[in-house]
Design a protein around this nucleic acid. Structure first.
Length: 262
DNA sequence: CGCGACCTGCAT
DNA sequence: ATGCAGGTCGCG
């Protein structure tokens, strides 16, 4: 589920429910989440108030009145349940209750989500500039990529380069930019890098819009998850009709068009 | 750098 | 039964 567009949507849900509210209960149901948010820390949240919820790459930060920060990362399958869900699925991993009776419910079948409490906002979180940050310049992007010789697809997944690009949109953006995912990141010329940065933004903003349409209408998940190359091995490229190829990079699937990506 | 580990559900 | 999944860390 969660790439940047899904996390953005989840953040909006969390804001609507939690901002301005005081936490009245915290239930951590799975040992995996207990590890990142031990009972002591969970208990200490009670009485604290949520000032703001921000997205940073694919993680969410809840700024608390106490000055602390609650960090939530969905990893592979986490999500906030839409408000109004009465019957909780058995895959619920944590429940935060608020003073107005509302609650924020972490649903995560694989239980890989990380929920942690930080005493203060981390100065350096290891994340690069956010993929949708308008302040991210082509120059900074190029500088971050120049230091490594790893394949560009792998570099895009490195959250320290740019925060927020996941496996799907890395492939999608490279297809849009007509760039071969295997190209070493330090061997891409400035003009191609500008194209790639634009492609990343276009791909992500288009995904955000498609997603909004999906939530506001009765479009199917099928429709929403129609990608140019991702999960389309063997199917025709939308530009040139060649067969989409799948390769493995850094143990993840990469999809690309062998004919029009160079 | 590549790869297993972390977890569970789902498709084959 | 096996292998795979949209993420990340830590190991060798």
């Amino acid at each position: 589920m969660p790439e940047l567009p899904e996390v953005e949507h989840a953040t909006a849900i969390a804001r609507r429910i939690a901002v301005g509210r005081t936490i009245t209960s915290v239930r951590v149901l799975h040992p995996s989440q207990r590890r990142s948010l031990p009972a002591r820390a969970a208990k200490s949240l009670i009485g604290d108030r949520i000032l703001e919820v921000q997205r940073r790459g694919k993680s969410q930060r809840f700024r608390l009145a106490s000055g602390r920060e609650l960090h939530v990362h969905f990893r592979m399958t986490g999500d906030w349940l839409e408000p109004g869900t009465s019957e909780l699925p058995r895959t619920v991993r944590a429940v935060f209750g608020f003073d107005d009776g509302s609650r924020l419910v972490l649903d995560d079948p694989r239980a890989l989500s990380v929920v942690s409490l930080c005493a203060s906002p981390a100065a350096d979180d290891g994340l690069g500039p956010d993929a949708l940050d308008p302040g991210l310049t082509a120059t900074a992007f190029a500088a971050a990529l120049a230091t490594r010789r790893i394949p560009i697809k792998v570099a895009l997944l490195d959250q320290g380069v740019v925060a927020g690009i996941g496996n799907i949109y890395a492939s999608e953006a490279l297809w849009r930019a007509r760039l071969d995912p295997r190209t070493p990141s330090n061997r891409i010329d400035p003009s191609a890098l500008r194209t790639l940065l634009r492609a990343i933004r276009t791909t992500l903003t288009a995904a955000l819009k498609r997603q909004e349409r999906y939530y506001n209408s009765n479009a199917t998940a099928e429709e929403y998850s129609r990608f140019a190359v991702y999960d389309r091995e063997g199917e025709p490229c939308r530009r040139c009709r060649s067969r989409i190829k799948r390769i493995t990079q850094a143990a993840r699937s990469t999809y690309y068009c062998p004919k029009c990506q160079h």
